[in-house]
Nucleic acid binder design. Sequence first.
DNA 1: CATGAATGAGCTTTCATTCAT
DNA 2: GATGAATGAAAGCTCATTCAT
Lengths: 202, 202, 202, 202
Amino acid sequence: MTHQAISIEPRKLPRQVRAQATVDAILDATARILEREGLPSLNTNHIAETAGISVGSLYQYFPTKNAILTVIIRRKRQELLDELAEALGDMETENLDTTLDKLVEATIESKMNWPKLARTLEYADAFLPLAQETDDLKFQLVNRIAEFLEHHKIEGPRIVAQDIVAIVKGIIETASLAGQTDRASLKKRILRGVNGYLQLVG
Amino acid sequence: MTHQAISIEPRKLPRQVRAQATVDAILDATARILEREGLPSLNTNHIAETAGISVGSLYQYFPTKNAILTVIIRRKRQELLDELAEALGDMETENLDTTLDKLVEATIESKMNWPKLARTLEYADAFLPLAQETDDLKFQLVNRIAEFLEHHKIEGPRIVAQDIVAIVKGIIETASLAGQTDRASLKKRILRGVNGYLQLVG
Amino acid sequence: MTHQAISIEPRKLPRQVRAQATVDAILDATARILEREGLPSLNTNHIAETAGISVGSLYQYFPTKNAILTVIIRRKRQELLDELAEALGDMETENLDTTLDKLVEATIESKMNWPKLARTLEYADAFLPLAQETDDLKFQLVNRIAEFLEHHKIEGPRIVAQDIVAIVKGIIETASLAGQTDRASLKKRILRGVNGYLQLVG
Amino acid sequence: MTHQAISIEPRKLPRQVRAQATVDAILDATARILEREGLPSLNTNHIAETAGISVGSLYQYFPTKNAILTVIIRRKRQELLDELAEALGDMETENLDTTLDKLVEATIESKMNWPKLARTLEYADAFLPLAQETDDLKFQLVNRIAEFLEHHKIEGPRIVAQDIVAIVKGIIETASLAGQTDRASLKKRILRGVNGYLQLVG
DNA sequence: CATGAATGAGCTTTCATTCAT
DNA sequence: GATGAATGAAAGCTCATTCAT
């Protein structure tokens, strides 16, 4: 008679232009609330209000609140992945330094624009049924970087790739929590960490 | 998260052993739930049940649910801080490597025993009114390490200290999420990151 | 994150006296609403209000709205079954007519006191996950009557039993919908139907 | 059941063939849903989808959801009534047995083709504002049969007519719930009940 | 003090109905 | 007329917190 909320997949595809606008408004509103107020303040009425639509409309496109979170996570992830892929794209021709430089820059961009949002999504990932998907993506990303490292004769490339990612993320998150927003200096420090690590691998 | 708490200080200082035991039971139950089921499953009835007491009793010792979280965060933090202090204690006499070694080991210990709990607390910290306290503690910790680094003639010691902490945390968290539990190899990799970074500071 | 509503079994057993009073108040209120206003007007807020309690209390004892309906159905059924059992109890000693008389009287009692409630429950049974339970009970009841008929040398006793039950129910329901409340004349007509049927069996 | 309807009359008399086809599609879809899934699963979007039209179109032809139910009830009723009228039509010439035979057969036909639908409509009738109409129809039907009985010198013909209808309905419903679909044997049993009753009237 | 029943604000979700295109 | 997006009242249900015993 009531309340199911099991699947997390988007409900129906927006066909008309205004429908797509509604979906976007929902996602934007959600992101904005997470950035400004945090997960505990996120509720569907608040989202609808912020998006300037009715709750009913929200549920036309998303079966549950978590489904919205899921879509945002997927989108943000895809964005980052695309940028990283671009950075890694020409690994045959470019040298190690240039590529690392690009990787770091892309990651900074992704995490520092909406830092609170980024952290919340990272956290939310843990309780959404996204485990497999998340693992797959991480696997892909790490693999991609590992290939690149291998091409440059670096040993144990998968572990190294994982640790590099960890270092980049670690320094960015800590700095963003400390309110440090100077991206140039941040990049310098991250590259120090990454390059330092690499030097000690051989 | 509703019913916003006014105060988050523990309601009374339990003077008797029995009372202290109850408080501990509550904190343990909360930690266990967070580790096993995560924040969304944490509610006061569940805590009370797990702790083997009644909700009423719970509220004898904690004014709000968040107060419990707050105390756990403080305790875990204090534990880590104590261990780090010990590691840093004899910085006059010990050398850099030995001390870093101890620092890393203490951090691994703290984060890997209850990895999900550790991440949850880190996240929860963000929406509890702990900002000042958290900043102070981080400030202290970074300062302490910075002093130590300065003593070893390392430049820009505060930023370096912060980044080292970030690297350690970053690698541990990523590894723990990837299910890597071999602490020895983890330590080796972390020290690679830290030492690598330090080499490139000068 | 919310809303499950799968099981239909009562949630926790009332231990204190006032808890039992609450459960009773809920069941009474539900029955009253069904009798007066019908199923479409039945909602948990309305029940709670009518019962003079809060919705929260309602959900302490029943996991879903349907669970309440289920319990009422079971209770009413048990009542009827007990009375029928009593009527059938001494089938060795009593004769056919006396026993049929009692059966009919018990059924009239059960269906005519709260006629709208009785019809609603009969209907609700169809969409509650009670199929097996309902079948079992009907099987039992029919079997019990069939044994009795067999003892009186009536052929095809299971089908006959089923049809007798159907005739009794049919006449009562139609009469109650037509607003006929004279139980004596009703009984006479029902017995006419039952005895007439039996005469044509042999 | 919310958003109570003011009027339940069909919104317009469809004059064109296309419109009539749409109306039929809506009614068929509704009947199909009721038979397969039951009243709790009946909602206007579901109906429209099943009928292959849009909700908007549905509301071109029916002012409320209940109006659809109402029309279905009226149609099914009319069908039954027509068949019964036919069976009773030549009551001057035909004898009692033949006529009863036809009556029973028509009723079986009406109730067994879509048993769940039939029961649902019977139930729904109770909460739709059809009371007067329903009473009138029952009155007509019972009267018609009563006349026929009177013609055959049966006493108290109105009550007898009502009880005969009740017996027929009762046995059919119970049998259909029990999954008995053999119409021949069913007819035999019903006639046993009806004739038995009639024998005891005199 | 402990217990656990009770409370009710607040959140999620549905669905009959309307309305812009 | 048809479409399907949008609306929002209303219902289901939870859980932090209080309070009678």
